[in-house]
């Protein structure tokens, strides 16, 4: 029973990074392999804000997420837009963006290693127990989960019940038609890319409150997010949240009942099964 709650708590943090990636890939059409670096950057920022200024990571999001938004806006405008303008087909853009962001990943990782070193970092925030249904869980994990749920819920409301949110979804469905209803597609793409980075950074700030982090771990989280996004169907925010919870549950179940060393194998096993049998994603419509 307790593995279910542990799995959901873990999945909640995965959900934000996956939603971030699905916005970048689904709307801005950039498969951002450097997205995990947003998360690592946010971990270090949260650590620094907490240890140097006693600003807790939840409050820290208010500083970190806007910073990530601006940085990602600049990355899109200066590093990605030339690729978008040059690529004649979406397939070409996909290949170019994968190669470019793969390079970006090493630049960002190098910068963080240079700034923070290669060591492992952790700090104590709400490191106490809380009892749920008779079992004890880390309070920081529970708080992080609740914060993630609030952020994901807010995003859902924005995307579904505001004019600009609907426009963002329209760009994901059909960019050409979006420009025919007066949507400034290049700007909406930059916005979605920046928002995706900000959400991923928010998940990093939350993760850092209970997770030992280091400058090298970005790629692990990018891959998890990628698995979730493919499982959910590209651009599907609600699906990404559900798939993230599923992945959290799967990982926790394997770690609890089989062996912690096999969690990654389980993740990619699930990934391959989805690719083989539901290439459009578990929740994705075929050929939409």
């Amino acid at each position: 029973m307790s593995f279910i709650i542990n799995g959901l708590l873990l999945g909640g943090t995965y959900a934000l990074i996956a939603v971030g990636l699905t916005l970048q890939y689904g709307v801005a059409r950039i498969m951002n392999l450097a997205n995990g670096e947003n998360l690592v950057f946010a971990c270090f920022m949260a650590f620094w804000l907490y240890t140097a200024f006693a600003i807790n990571p939840i409050l820290g999001i208010v500083i970190i997420a806007p910073m990530a938004f601006v940085i990602n806006w600049l990355i899109y405008s200066y590093a990605m837009r030339p690729l978008v303008n040059r690529s004649k087909t979406s397939g070409q853009l996909e290949v170019n963006s994968i190669l470019a962001t793969f390079g970006l990943l090493f630049i960002l990782k190098g910068l963080m290693k240079f700034s923070f070193g290669g060591g492992y970092f952790t700090y104590n925030y709400l490191a106490e127990g809380i009892s749920i249904f008779g079992h004890n869980y880390g309070l920081n994990r529970v708080v992080a989960f609740i914060a993630a749920a609030v952020i994901a819920g807010t995003l859902y409301l924005f995307l579904n019940y505001t004019r600009y949110g609907t426009a963002i979804r329209a760009v994901a469905v059909n960019p050409t038609s979006a420009s025919l209803v007066a949507i400034n597609v290049p700007r909406a793409s930059a916005f979605a890319f920046a928002l995706g980075g900000a959400l991923t950074a928010a998940s990093g700030a939350l993760l850092s409150s209970f997770y030992t982090f280091h400058a090298d771990m970005g790629m692990d989280f990018t891959m998890k997010a990628l698995v979730i996004v493919i499982m959910a169907g590209v651009g599907d925010v609600r699906g990404a949240v559900l798939a993230a919870l599923m992945l959290g549950l799967t990982e926790t179940a394997i770690a609890t009942f089989v062996d912690p060393g096999l969690t990654a194998a389980g993740t990619y096993g699930l990934f391959i099964l989805v690719l083989l049998f539901r290439p459009q994603g578990i929740f994705g419509r075929s050929n939409s």
């Binding site: 609907t166 329209a170 059909n174 050409t176 209803v181 007066a182 949507i183 939409s288």
Partner: peptide, 23 residues
């Protein structure tokens, strides 16, 4: 446009609302 170019995954109401997106 040719082939209609509607936003297939969105509702009818959302498609119409997006028509009025421009100022």
């Amino acid at each position: 446009p040719e082939g209609r170019g509607i936003f297939g995954a969105l509702s009818v109401a959302e498609n119409l609302e997006l028509g009025a997106f421009g100022k």
